[in-house]
Simulated assay, not measured.
Amino acid sequence: MVSQISIIAGRGRDGRCDRIERLDLNMGDVVSVVGRTGSGKTTLINDIELFADGDTPTGRRILFDGVPAAPEDRDDPSRNPIALITQHTTFLSDLPVTEFLVTHARIRARSQAAAQALVAETLMFANQLTGEPINPGSRMTELSGGQTRALLIADATVICDTPIVLLDEVENAGINRTRALELLRRHKRIFIFVTHDPRIALLSDRRIVMSEGRITDVLETDEEEQAVAPAVTRLDDMLSHLRERLRGGLRVSRADLEVA
């Protein structure tokens, strides 16, 4: 089981090097990758997902417990230490939810009985992230964007049991972000969020700042930012409340601004 990954500096689009020569991420860390659109956030997590070893356009290297990934980790899905959840959720097979999860559990070398237990745990996890419960008999392509992303997060955390989970802009999926972070922290993985969301960024342990395709800074979330986070959460909850009322065809009033 991998306990640490290290990002060894590469270069941005202009050829300049990352400002951080080496960044170590340890089990239990929750990290956000922030920066403007086009700053290189997704490129960074792609380097991690591809086990970069100086062979990607950035020239970065990713080490696992101090060494490059072993060939079997690259080639055997059951040994891959990384789960990547992107904004794109196109499925090659239109399976019912339960069959999709059981199939994945069996690929991970689980017995049938253990697979069924994991499926139940995964659905319970996912339904805490989305306001609309997932019907186990529904087909994967019938799920809403929020349900799909919640299910994939749960699947990566419970069934994959991978030490490293990469999440690319999950805030756009309509999941409960605060609840997601609470649940994810209990599972002691290395979680890396690509995000524009201030709630996720401030609830992370640190932020990797990207600009022009390179890492320009790494900021620890300090006590003052931790104190700001609850106010940001209240604002976000208020906006979520207004959004749900409008989606439901209801009117809003000044009283709705006080719900948080």
Rank of each mutant, 00 (worst) to 15 (best):
V31I: 15
G249D: 00
S240V: 08
R247M: 04
A9Y: 13
T157D: 04
R106L: 15
R149D: 05
G213E: 01
V2Y: 00
T122M: 03
D65Q: 08
C160D: 13
P57F: 05
S3Y: 07
V209W: 01
F91Y: 11
D155I: 08
L143R: 00
T89E: 06
L246D: 07
H241D: 03
V33N: 04
I153R: 03
I20Y: 06
F64C: 12
I159F: 04
D73L: 14
L246G: 07
T37G: 08
T43N: 05
P198Q: 14
L23P: 03
T141S: 10
E223V: 10
A150N: 06
I159V: 15
A109K: 15
A227H: 12
E223T: 11
V31L: 06
D161W: 07
V209G: 01
D217V: 05
A126G: 04
S3C: 06
A9I: 13
I107C: 12
A117F: 05
F64L: 15
G249E: 02
D73K: 15
R60P: 15
S211L: 12
G15R: 13
V30L: 10
G10V: 13
G35A: 10
L143W: 02
N172C: 12
I208T: 02
Q116N: 14
L25N: 01
E49K: 14
L50E: 15
A201G: 12
E21I: 09
P230E: 09
T89N: 10
S204K: 02
L166W: 01
A52D: 13
T98A: 08
L123I: 14
P133L: 04
F64Y: 15
F51N: 08
R207M: 12
I45F: 04
G40Y: 02
V97I: 12
V228P: 00
R206L: 04
T86D: 09
N127L: 06
I85G: 04
E132Y: 07
V31M: 09
V228A: 06
L184T: 03
P96E: 00
D73R: 15
I85W: 06
G213Y: 02
V119S: 03
T103A: 09
E21S: 14
V228G: 00
R74T: 12
L123C: 01
A126P: 02
E212S: 07
G66V: 15
A227M: 12
R189G: 06
G59S: 05
A114R: 10
V67P: 07
P96S: 02
S6F: 03
F191C: 10
I192P: 03
G145F: 07
A70Y: 13
V228R: 09
Q112F: 13
G38V: 10
T216C: 11
H104N: 10
A117P: 13
P71I: 05
L152R: 00
N80A: 13
P163Y: 03
L250H: 10
E212G: 05
L184S: 01
L203M: 11
E224C: 04
